[in-house]
Simulated assay, not measured.
Amino acid sequence: MSKRKDVDELSHLGQEETSYTFEYDPSLLETFNNNHPDRDYFVKFNCPEFTTLCPKTGQPDFATLYISYIPDERMVESKSLKLYLFSFRNHGGFHEDAINTIVDDLVELMAPRYLEVIGKFTPRGGISIDPYANYGRPGTTFEEMAKTRLLYHDMYPETIDNR
């Protein structure tokens, strides 16, 4: 079995000891080469243990994040994504800001064709907040896709029975 050379530069994957950062740190994110850049396909991450802090009260907020993207040349390595998301643990930010920050960081990291992030936050004070943000590469059909998905992302909201 031949080893991929592009994975040698990944510093988190395969390490016996994992160091967790408790402050927001986008430098934790790492990428590897997409072996199928000639094909459009989705990659989806489900992150059911996302936490951040309310910037006013310091109380914890909990969410499930859904991160979906269509890669181009680079893909995000999943352990680095996990460590990056964990770095929000003591970060004070509103739900909407966290989701938009994640979109911005992943777009800067990978330059994907398309990316979307949905946050399903558990209620606090009787209200749940579910921000959605996306990106489509400008000047491509993915830009149009992003516009359409944004307009129709919540046309058929789910029945909330798990929060």
Score class of each variant (00 low, 15 high):
Leu85Lys: 09
Ile70Met: 04
Ala133Lys: 08
Lys56Cys: 01
Glu144His: 04
Gly136Asp: 08
Glu143Asn: 15
Phe32Leu: 03
Asp105Val: 01
His95Arg: 06
Leu28Tyr: 01
Ser78Asn: 14
Phe88Leu: 14
Leu83Tyr: 04
Asp25Lys: 14
Asn34Cys: 15
Glu30Arg: 07
Asp104Trp: 08
Tyr135Leu: 06
Thr64Pro: 07
Tyr66Val: 04
Asp38Asn: 07
Asp105Arg: 13
Ala133Val: 03
Gly58Leu: 06
Asp72Val: 11
Asn90Lys: 05
Thr52Arg: 04
Thr141Ser: 15
Pro138Thr: 11
Pro112Asn: 04
Glu77Cys: 11
Pro60Gly: 04
Lys120Arg: 10
Met110Ala: 06
Gly92Arg: 09
Ile70Trp: 03
Asn46Gly: 05
Lys56Ala: 03
Lys44Thr: 11
Leu115Val: 04
Asn35Leu: 03
Phe88Lys: 11
Pro123Ser: 10
Lys56Val: 01
Phe121Pro: 09
Leu65Gln: 08
Lys120Pro: 01
Pro55Ser: 00
Arg137Thr: 09
Gly58Phe: 04
Asn34Gly: 10
Gln59Thr: 10
Val103Lys: 11
Asn34Phe: 15
Asn90Arg: 08
Gln59Lys: 09
Gly119Arg: 13
Leu53Asn: 13
Phe62Ser: 06
Ala98Val: 04
Pro26Ser: 04
His91Thr: 10
Tyr84Pro: 02
Ser80Cys: 08
Lys79Gly: 06
Asp72Pro: 05
Thr101Trp: 02
Arg137His: 05
Ile70Asn: 07
Tyr69Phe: 00
Arg113Trp: 13
Thr101Met: 03
His95Gly: 03
Gly126Asn: 06
Lys82Gly: 03
Glu96Tyr: 03
Asn134Val: 10
Cys54Trp: 01
Met75Cys: 15
Phe94Trp: 09
Pro48Phe: 11
Asp130Ser: 02
Pro48Leu: 08
Met75Glu: 14
Asp25His: 08
Asn134Thr: 13
His36Gln: 02
Asp97Ala: 10
Val43Asn: 14
Val103Met: 13
Ala98Asp: 02
Ser128Asp: 02
Asn33Pro: 00
Leu29Phe: 00
Glu73His: 13
Ile70Cys: 09
Pro123Val: 02
Ala133Asn: 07
Ala133Phe: 00
Phe32Asn: 02
Pro131Glu: 08
Asn35Thr: 00
Phe62Lys: 06
Phe88Tyr: 14
Thr31Gln: 12
Pro123Lys: 05
Ser78Tyr: 12
Tyr69Thr: 02
His36Leu: 07
Gly139Lys: 04
Tyr24His: 10
Pro112Met: 06
Thr31Asp: 11
Pro60Ile: 06
Asp130Met: 03
Phe86Leu: 00
Ile118Trp: 14
Pro123Gly: 03
Cys47Met: 09
Asn35Ile: 00
Pro26Ile: 07
Leu28Val: 01
Gly119Lys: 11
Asp40Gly: 00
Ser80Phe: 08
Phe88Thr: 06
Leu65Ala: 09
Tyr114Gln: 14
Arg39Ile: 13
Lys79Glu: 10
Glu96Gly: 00
Asn100Trp: 07
Asn33Ser: 00
Leu85Tyr: 05
Lys44Asp: 15
Arg74Ser: 12
Arg39Ser: 09
Tyr135Pro: 06
Arg89Glu: 13
Ile99Thr: 14
Lys79Asp: 08
Thr52Ile: 06
Asp38Ile: 12
Pro26Gly: 04
Asp105Glu: 10
Ala111Ser: 15
